[in-house]
Write a protein that binds this DNA or RNA. Structure first.
Lengths: 296, 296
DNA sequence: CGATCTTACGGGATTCGTAAACATA
DNA sequence: TATGTTTACGAATCCCGTAAGATCG
């Protein structure tokens, strides 16, 4: 049995109007076409639904029975249509993004502000974790996409460059490096250095750029905020990516970009291969590209 | 937006199978036709519902959302289809008949027994009242049709002969009329007579047949059962239609048919003009015709 | 005779299946 | 290369609107 929303709609209109001509025009059909439609509906349902003479049109008992089903069907159709329109117009939906804590703290707030202003009905999810769990959350479906420092190209995942992130030296205002002209990586090696843990992407980029040289390690810490405190206390200098410099925007501290272009940290947009982003995710990613941090 | 049960079904099959070829064969369609169907569905819904490559078919986020609506729609379609099938097969339904108390007591039980045996799911309604309220209940929709002694042909109602009902004299066994040969209406006039009330159809037929003669009225009563008691007590004789003779099937009483054919009471089937009987009512009426009382 | 539903029929759109092209592992 | 989806296209079907026919008040 095949039954379309159009059939149901036509039936309901006729049941209300009790007049083929009026009902037909309401359905934007010629009267004979409408008559044929009702006849074919009766055939597919297998029951005579209307008693009709040239003067009167009335529901049969079976028609009354079908009316109940038709009204429920019509309500479901309407709900379905509304749901689809809402999702298409981003009035309703959900998006979850995984990104590095540095992006989440410094840059994301403005993005989310713009996003919710435009799409207030969309539920947001943020996973502000390191690159590895970012990738994992995309792989297992917790996040629609991720912005991470790992070029994760697996059979499941696909990465594309999103932005790049230059490195900056951080030292106290009174430090000799604070005003040195033409700063280079070489200049940093003599000084006590606050390292991040080896598993951090910052450390890996830095070690690679230094190799085979090394820094005078004073200490290794996990959090950039800790490194900030140590530098502010005059215990050493450190290197941080541009996106996390908001940590070091403090009195008594100086940040200077390291002019080593090929050392720039790449941030990738990571998503599932062969799966399109949801509309809500597309809109968020589009906005993120429009508001992409200056590739300083 | 037009959406058919076929579309929804196809969507659900593909969402389950995640394979166009298999889903197509399940829907008895060629694979390209099925592919086109899904494409047109996506177009009417206005959303991409599946991510498809040559290897994998997966629901998009929007497809997941539609899946919920589709499942609810599918359930409604199934419920509707079942309801219609039940109605068509008389597994479900309702019929209400109005008929004279005489028919209701003597003849109806066997009819209803046969009817419920054949259609156990049909709800029954019986209005065992006099002809006038019978007709009224059809006119106001309380009964599907009536069996009454009034030929009710109004703009709203239509009557057709159903059966005829001969009249019988009732007297005590010891009464002279009990064994008299060649009984005629004349023979009854000398004896004390138990009349029914003037508004009863029996009385009207009897008065018309007698006119201008009259009976020796002993008393007028409303109920045939009362008349039976009075006759049994030897207070008089009476006349009753064949269909209510079960009242007089008692020891000490004799009933004899009055051989006056054109006096026979007509019973009519009364129904609304221009309205078909419900399937349940059709079945009941057909059975009633098949089991029609012998036109004694 | 006027209003209204049904039937008849020609044209146009939709939909189907076969065959070929295309894509991915 | 094998599996599976999309494109191309001719044919059958379905659906619509106009016009004529039938029916009831």
């Amino acid at each position: 049995m095949n039954l379309s929303s159009r059939d149901v709609q036509a039936f309901l209109v006729l049941a209300r109007q009790k007049n083929f001509t009026q009902a037909a025009s309401m359905c934007h059909l010629s009267q004979p076409a409408f008559s044929a439609l009702i006849r074919s509906l009766e055939q597919t349902v297998g029951l005579k639904l209307f008693d009709r003479s040239t003067r009167h049109v009335v529901l049969t008992t079976e028609g009354e029975r079908f009316l109940q089903s038709a009204e429920r069907l019509c309500a479901e159709f309407a709900a379905c249509e509304k749901a689809m329109r809402d999702t298409a117009q981003l009035t309703q939906g959900h998006v979850s993004v995984a990104l590095l804590p540095s992006l989440a703290a410094g840059w994301l707030p403005a993005v989310l502000k713009a996003y919710t202003a435009r799409h207030p009905g969309i539920q947001l999810g943020v996973l502000d974790v390191l690159s590895e769990p970012c990738i994992a959350s995309v792989a297992n479906g917790d996040a629609d996409f991720a912005l991470a420092a790992i070029r994760a190209d697996t059979p499941d995942l696909r990465a594309e460059p999103f932005c790049s992130d230059s490195f900056h030296m951080v030292c106290p205002r009174a430090h000799p490096l604070a005003n040195k002209a033409a700063l280079s990586l070489e200049d940093l090696t003599p000084w006590p250095f606050i390292h991040l843990a080896r598993h951090s992407s910052v450390r890996q980029y830095l070690d690679a750029a230094l190799f085979p040289r090394t820094m005078q390690t004073f200490v290794e810490v996990e959090q950039l905020a800790t490194a900030m405190g140590l530098v502010q206390a005059g215990l050493g200098i450190t290197v941080a990516p541009a996106l996390s410099l908001f940590h070091f925007n403090k009195p008594g501290l100086v940040t200077r970009q390291l002019p080593i272009p090929d050392m720039d940290r790449q941030i990738y947009m990571v998503r599932k291969r062969e799966r399109s982003l949801s509309l809500a995710a597309q809109a968020l990613y589009q906005l993120m590209q429009d508001m992409r941090p200056a590739s300083a």
